[in-house]
Simulated scan of single mutants.
Amino acid sequence: MVKTLPKDFIFGGATAAYQAEGATKTDGKGRVAWDKYLEDNYWYTAEPASDFYNRYPVDLELSEQFGVNGIRISIAWSRIFPTGFGEVNPKGVEFYHKLFAECHKRHVEPFVTLHHFDTPETLHSNGDFLNRDNIEHFVNYAAFCFKEFSEVNYWTTFNEIGPIGDGQYLVGKFPPGIQY
């Protein structure tokens, strides 16, 4: 007897903006902490990654074709606010509206994460989340996204909050690379 999944089962995949989008210098996107960290410590960059920024329609068409009906996607904070705060980048906002529309067109529910290890470089260099001002900048960014992207039904604030503290400030494997 063949078992079938429940009708409301979400069979999903996952991406992260910095790990998948590429287009790190495209349409007004600001730098993130990883840009400098990779330049200083490694031989590779996030360019072009899997070029999700340009190829998401193909990826989502394939998702639909193969029965993937959910995807975790992160918004690149620096694509919306290039320095983490201040003026909104309209091209970044437009990109995510188009991405979410394509998700819905392809019957792929987006589960959206606001921060996936990609603090804007300006904020990271002035203390990241150890600086209380940057916490307020994140709150403002989150509030903007919740209001702007009303087509999103599922939100997560931080991806893997534990490894952020551990990787950045205890083990030192993430920028700024501090070993406690």
Rank of each mutant, 00 (worst) to 15 (best):
P6T: 09
F9G: 10
I10P: 00
G12E: 10
G13Q: 11
A14R: 08
A14V: 07
T15D: 10
A20E: 04
G22Y: 08
A23S: 12
A23M: 03
K25E: 13
T26R: 09
T26I: 08
G28Y: 00
K29H: 06
K29V: 01
R31P: 01
V32K: 00
D35G: 10
Y37D: 05
Y37P: 05
N41L: 09
S50Y: 01
N54I: 01
P57V: 09
P57G: 03
V58Q: 13
V58D: 12
L60K: 06
E61T: 15
E61C: 07
L62Y: 02
S63C: 15
S63R: 01
E64S: 15
V68H: 02
I73E: 11
I75G: 03
W77H: 07
I80P: 04
F81K: 01
F81Y: 14
P82W: 05
F85Y: 14
N89E: 01
P90S: 11
Y96W: 09
K98R: 15
K98P: 03
K98D: 13
L99H: 12
F100V: 06
C103P: 06
H104W: 14
H104C: 04
K105V: 05
K105T: 14
H107Y: 10
P110M: 07
F111V: 15
V112M: 09
V112L: 07
T113P: 02
H116F: 06
F117E: 06
T119Y: 01
E121K: 10
D128T: 00
D128S: 10
F129K: 02
F129A: 07
R132L: 11
R132Q: 14
D133I: 00
H137L: 02
F138R: 00
F138Y: 14
V139H: 08
V139D: 04
A142M: 10
A142R: 14
F144C: 02
F149M: 09
N153G: 10
Y154T: 12
G167P: 13
Q168F: 05
Q168G: 01
L170T: 15
I178R: 11
I178Q: 08
Q179T: 12
